[in-house]
Design a protein around this nucleic acid. Structure first.
Lengths: 193, 193
DNA sequence: ACGCTCGTGTCACTCGGTGTCAAGGCGCTA
DNA sequence: TAGCGCCTTGACACCGAGTGACACGAGCGT
């Protein structure tokens, strides 16, 4: 019941933030504006989000675990290129499901340096997660073998490229085909003996 | 002659900054401290560097062009895995040449979130540069073909992994061998038909 | 009605970063 | 040598992000 209210305020904040940021640009909007638009004080904003960037990017936090979980749930014998393709497909289909809401957010992130930087930080964490899972899956030592980290990096590279293409075009094409094409490029390295 | 002085002040600033940041940590040092340690005012600091991060990371600015130039200078028929290996080798040998000075800087960057984020931003620009050069070299259309961007990404991924391993170990092993091993992993995708 | 806790607003403060302006060094020319 | 611009610097004021401290009020159990 108190949790409900927390969630409600949080949504109010993100809603107000996304609306303001998308129209006026990241730097032109102050936290005070966002907070008052959501009907709370600046101090309360920072009780919900650690920074101005977080209000946009925070939803990425859980996705690292999602990707890793998907990879962990793939059948043991599956080729890495396929397993990783599906792992990375999770956030991608989440995006394309949310319609142009997600599109606007992605565009905002990719074209705002401060947000893009945060995004890249998240991705670096995802990569480490994925690499650990991959090392586990293939029984490799991540301390000596470059494969896990590089494979995870390649997969996220493909993810990035797809996201870029998807958000960059005039109108979004379906990410599924894009993802398949991107993974076709990296698969030879992913599946090398 | 005025240029000399500019360079001198700049060096003084970076020197003071690196010394303070390495010992006290990034967040525990204020710009005022750095500036007064270098004998100038805070305002002057910002006439030389755009931000607190820049004083550490600014030397990365030119390296994107260096990498691209090296790639451009590789023989036309050379396999991408080899050409990219040498392109990425440029900053790596620069690092290992500068002894543990560079080591300390790299460690500081990789373990400080704010600096790491800036580093990743630079790398994203490098990737776009490399991708453009690669598309040019192989006569591909970067608007439709995923290969240039992904290949550039893979090469920088290898760069990253090597840097991480190099700075992470107790004492640095030679980056050359590391780089070869990393490129051996990604080469199958780089050189696929 | 009494306390308790928890979320919130207010205030004061630090620090990164920027605009403005006045003061001083330096080369140029008369 | 005196005077005139140019450019660098420092001083100051200012804004916005982020944090700590504290007091207020709502909800709740007794």
């Amino acid at each position: 019941m108190a949790e409900r209210k927390r969630q409600l305020v949080s949504n109010e904040l993100t809603e107000a933030a996304l609306q303001l940021l998308a129209t006026k640009g990241f730097d032109a909007v102050t936290i005070d504006e966002i907070a008052t638009a959501a009907g709370v004080s600046k101090r309360t904003f920072f009780r919900y989000f650690a920074s101005k960037e977080d209000v946009v990017v925070q939803f990425l936090a859980g996705m690292g675990a999602d990707i890793r979980a998907e990879l962990a749930s793939r059948p043991a014998g599956e080729r890495p290129s396929v397993a990783l393709r599906y792992a990375v497909g999770v956030p991608l289909t989440t995006c394309s499901d949310h319609g142009d809401r997600a599109l606007r957010v992605v565009r905002l992130i990719l074209r705002t340096p401060a947000l893009h930087a945060r995004f890249l930080e998240h991705q670096a964490r995802w990569r480490d997660d994925l690499a650990a899972e991959l090392a586990d899956r293939l029984d490799l030592d991540p301390g000596t073998d470059f494969y896990p980290r590089l494979a995870a990096g390649m997969a996220l590279n493909a993810f990035d490229a797809v996201l870029h293409r998807w958000s960059g075009g005039d109108r979004p094409e379906d990410p599924t085909g894009l993802t398949d094409r991107a993974f076709a490029v990296i698969a030879p390295a992913l599946d090398a003996t």
